[in-house]
Amino acid sequence: MSTVTTTPARGKGARRKTTKAKVPNAVWGLIGILVFLGIWELLPALGIVKAEYLPPASEVLVTLAKDFTLTAFWLAVGETMLAWFIGLLVAVLLALVLGLVIGMSSFLRRATNSTIEFLRPIPSVALIPLAVLLFGTKIESSLMLIIYACFWQVLIQVLYGVADVDNVAMQTARSYGFSPFQRIRDVIFPTMLPYLMTGIRLGAAVALILAITAELIIGSPGLGKEIQLAQSGGAIAGMYALIVATGLLGVLINLGMRLIEKRILSWHVSVRGENIA
């Protein structure tokens, strides 16, 4: 969701952007946030929803601010992020290696296609009971779910990326006597990189979802477990504060991944010949 500018006329005489807006989008966005918080504040205040079930926004935000000063809170964030990071890393490495091997051989591509198409849609949460059986409430449970879910996201993108390699470029490389390693490094990898980044960005979001899910359902350590504890302990405002915190964490991860993607691909766009469609 990038910034939006209207171009009413695309005519020759009017190529330049015409911004009629007097109010910048950031201000509108801020208004949106305030309206949302306002409604949240009013719902329990007007008795539309019981305050025990939905504490007013002000109370939740105060609790969240208090959380920010607590070591226990940051420990939980750290545990969630640790599972997120390790899971994502392992999934990316596995998917990258397997994706390259499969993608570069048309025989392997065809032979694995049906298996991949069959395994991919299996919901990762189906593995929850197995994870509990194998690892209990340890971090490995989180990792198993995260790796399984992210692996497919990244693998598919890597396969797309390798398939996108220009035949002419590949033949050129071959005719100049590039070794297989050089071909991977200088032809395949650069073509695939944007796809890989897309896969990692999608995988990062999925990894957070599964980290929180595992903590919430299985009870492996992290923010999700804290949410579950707050809920069963009746600390409702605390529960909402933690939920807001996971949302903020998600926003940060999304922004961070987009930033990294931009950085890594900025020098790259010309190489790839970004299609502006």
């Binding site: 009413p8 695309r10 005519g11 020759k12 009017a14």
Partner: peptide, 17 residues
Amino acid sequence: PSGSGKTTLLKCIAGLL
């Protein structure tokens, strides 16, 4: 000549601008 506002004119006539 190009850039002479031909398209702008046409869009005004068409009621699009």
